[in-house]
Every structure is written in C-alpha cells, then in structure tokens.
Design a binder for these strands. Structure first.
Length: 426
RNA sequence: GGAGAGGUGGCCGAGCGGUUUAAGGCGCAGCACUGGAAAUGCUGUUUAGGGGUGACUCUAACGAGGGUUCGAAUCCCUCCCUCUCCGCCA
C-alpha cells in the first residue's frame, strides 16, 4: 500500500512515478476522499471530546451527591443524547469514506524505484548479465523435457489429468526422487547461506493474501476454498511474509531471512494458450522461496544479495542463465524493483523465467502492518520486505532434463545433486 | 463436533458501570545518593490517526466487531484465538 501522507503531500511526484508503469494513474479520487475523511474526523473527534466531558461531569456530580433526577444531571444527559445523535450521523459516513479510501489504496500498485529502468513492457527489460555460456549443451537433437520425461517414465501428464485436470503432472519413480533431491539441495544451500527454514500453512486466509498484495486485485489468480475463508497459497511468499503480520518487531530482530519449500497453486487464468505442455506452467508446482524482512536503509543491498543466493543455485547446477532487470512497465504489482533469472531451455531455444526476485520496499509491510521499533526511539517504522524464488523446482527439473540430455537419450545428473539422488544418470 | 475455563501494557497481575488519567509489582531509562557499585529514593517509560511552524493538543486502542448507557476493561450479542475434558482422526 502506498503511503497516504506521501500521496497527499507530493501528488504530482506520485502520479509521475505511477505513470511509469504505463497507463494513467488517477489519484484524484484518493485525494478528494482523504480531504473529506479528515474533515469528518476533525468534526467527529470534537464531538467525542464533548461527549467524554459530559460523561465525566455526570460521574463527578453523582459522586459528590447529585441525584439522577436533578435538573443539572438531566440537562447533561440530554446534551449527551444530542451529541450522540450527531455522532450517529457522522460515524457511518466517516467509516464509509475510510473504507472507500482503503479500497482505492489497496488497488494502487507500488511506485517503481528510482533505479528501475523505464520501459513500456517486457520487451524493454534490461539484460544485466549472462552466466554459463560454457555449459550450453552441444547436443543438437534435444527433446523437449516433457517428451524425454515421458519416454523415461518419470513424468506422467495423462494420468495426472485423470485425477485432476490439465496443467497437472504426476512424478513417477526417479522423477519424484529428482524433485525431492532438488528441494533438499536448494533448502540445504539456502540454509547454509543464512536463511532459516519455515514450513508454513499453504491454506491461507484472505487477510494474508491482502497483506502481500494478491488481494483484492488478483483474486482470480488463486484457488479458493469456498466453504472457508481459505485459499491455496500461490507462493510461499504469502504465508512466510505474513508470519509477522501485525507485529512490531524490535530492531535487533532484523534482518530476518527465511527459506521455505511449499507447493504453489495458481489458476493461471488468462494464459489458456500458453505453455500448455510440460512443466513450465502448472496449476500446482513446487518452489523453494526466499523471504527477507529488513531495515529500510539496507533493502537495496539485501535485494542484490538475495539475487546472488538464487543465482548460486543455478551456478551450482551449472545451468546457463541470464539476469533481467524488469522495466517499469513489466514490474509486478507490489514490487518497486525486480530481477528475473531466466534459465536456458534448449528445446525451445529460449531463456525462461525460473526465479523472480523483488524488493517491495514498505509496500507489503504497510498492508500486512509489519513494523519494527528501535529501542529508545519514538514511534515505529515499517520493515522492507523482499522475496525471490530460490528456485522454482519444476522449471529446474525441466532445465536439467533438457540441458543435461546426452546423445544416447539419458540424462546426466548435475554433480551437486548426485549425493542427493544417489545416481549419476537417468 | 460437544462441554467448560480463559484472552488486560515489554512481562506478571488487579479491576467487574463513573476522579481508570488502567492499581500494584517486575523490567527498562534518566536523575539523586556513592570513591565506584549494590541497595534505596525520585522522575519517566505504548502505539496509531487528526490539528498546530512549534511547545502542545484532540481522538482511538483492555482478543475483533456490534449493542445498551450521559458514561463500558466492566453488562448484552456475534465472531476469532488459547487452554482442559469428551468424541473423531494421521
């Protein structure tokens, strides 16, 4: 959520930053509601002050011997009732305005950071670096991962469709073992890098989704359990960040680094024609996620470090990849800055996103109300939150099945995974 | 799912309709005392929003939301959470 005070005080600057995302940000309704709401708040609190005064007076007079039927008491009660009637008019109006204001603010995306390259759409994302050209596969006849996977009998899309629907997969035998190895490998590495592992609930409430920015705007992206106020988590970002929702941490608690393996569930609404085959775009996939809660002044450096932690996994697996910095037009709703890691998928001759590492600044912290307090200092500050995949497991599996395909149709297992899987080829 | 007990400040804990401006204690900070410390004493010690250049000031917050009342931590209703017992269950 944007800072209302900032919008109020620098409307032009906010408008300009928002417009860098493309479109024409309209903050006028917010400014107008804010003015009205504050106006009502002033009136209301004055009435309340008088009401409190009356209550106190009655109490004092009764204590010092006045009777309930004394004219003085009756007059005060009468005035109390009048004030109350006025409040009864004002209060609902103010509440309504506040709710409208909140609804508008919740729909506003974050401001892109100063350092984010300006651009209209994904075409204008900036390649920051490329790694692992020396590991690009030389095999010219690489099968797509879904074909080699089915051939090896380790992936079954057809059978998964029977028990769920399209865009699901069942991992069989070595496929399941490879998935598990990747999860363990990634968690071990990230724990080594200083992240504390979490296994959060993956059925999560609406408030959590609002806290990280998936609600209210992106309700159609997540699976909902209609009998309860619970949703299937689209990413561990949501439960892990919201572990601290509503808390005021002490400054010494920061930074907090978490890694979490969870399954992730996405409806993929609006992507009907895209990536219909393989492991790239499923309704259910596994992911190891990295989440950081940090002091504001450190968040940029923490962001770079988080990207390094995600890259380290690709490097250890010797998978060629590139790093893109998203331009203002392609930036996710809550992010002020974002790097995507894209792994090489030889069957399609393309780099494909395998990790997205975002800095949210205080955007999520405001929504989820996560603050910290410095001992001896007045007031509190919002933390900055960051997260990134470290990495998406299914897409990593796809990358291995393709980049490690050998001429004889077998798959070599990356060296670092061999101890986990207990074999050298598939 | 059934029955019962609870939820008060950084922590413990009192309060069950009106000087609550939340007692008392612990903790923490400052000051005094001291050669220095301990002990002791005094003072202070929440957050959010509004108004004001500022000193400051108003409002709100006792799990959450409603209600009764001139006045609610206290009474009533709904919900959430925790604990105990029973049932069910991996």
């Amino acid at each position: 959520m944007l800072d209302l005070k900032q919008i109020r005080e620098n409307p032009q600057a906010v408008r300009e930053r928002l417009n860098l995302r493309g479109g024409d940000a309209d903050i006028e309704p917010i400014l107008a509601l804010d003015r009205k709401q504050r106006d009502l708040e002033t009136q209301r609190s004055q009435l309340q002050a008088r009401s409190n005064e009356i209550g106190k007076l009655v109490g004092q007079k009764m204590k010092s011997g006045a009777k309930p039927q004394d004219a003085e008491i009756l007059a005060l009660k009468e005035e109390g009732n009048q004030v109350k009637a006025q409040l009864a008019q004002l209060e609902p109006r103010e509440r309504e305005l506040k709710a409208e204001l909140d609804a508008l603010l919740l729909m506003m995306p974050n401001l892109p950071s100063e350092s984010t390259p300006v651009g209209k759409n994904e075409e204008e994302n900036v390649e920051v670096r490329r790694w692992g050209d020396e590991y690009l596969p030389e095999n010219p006849n690489i099968l797509p991962h879904w074909e080699i996977g089915e051939k090896l009998g380790i992936l079954s899309f057809d059978r998964a469709v029977k028990i769920a629907q399209s865009r699901f997969v069942a991992l069989i035998g070595a496929g399941a073992a490879l998935e598990r190895s990747l999860i363990n490998f990634m968690l071990d590495r990230q724990i080594q890098a200083g992240y504390i592992e979490v296994m959060p609930p993956v059925l999560i409430n609406s408030n959590s989704l609002q806290g990280t920015g998936q609600l209210p705007k992106f309700a159609e992206e997540s699976f909902k359990c209609y009998a309860d106020d619970l949703w299937l988590a689209p990413t561990a970002e949501v439960p892990v960040t919201n572990l601290y929702a509503g808390e005021t941490l002490s400054a010494e608690d920061l930074p907090i680094y978490h890694c979490a393996y969870t399954p992730c569930f996405r409806r993929e609404a609006g992507s009907y024609g895209k990536d219909t085959r393989g492991l790239i775009r499923l309704h259910q996939f596994n992911k190891v996620e990295l989440v950081k809660l940090v002091r504001p002044e450190t968040s940029e450096a923490e962001h770079e470090a988080l990207v390094q932690n995600a890259e380290a996994i690709l490097q250890a697996l010797k998978l060629p990849y590139r790093v893109l910095e998203l331009c203002t037009g392609d930036l996710g709703f809550g992010a002020n800055k974002c790097y995507d890691l894209e792994v090489w998928l030889p069957s399609s001759g393309k780099y494909r996103e395998i990790s997205s590492c975002s800095n949210f600044g205080d955007f999520q912290a405001r929504r989820a109300n996560i603050r910290f307090k410095e001992a001896g200092k007045k007031g509190t500050q919002f933390v900055h939150t960051l997260n990134g995949s470290g990495l998406a497991i299914g897409r990593t599996m796809a990358a291995i099945l393709e980049n490690y395909q050998q001429l004889d149709g077998t798959i070599a297992i990356p060296e670092v995974l061999q101890p986990y899987l207990g074999r050298e080829t598939l």
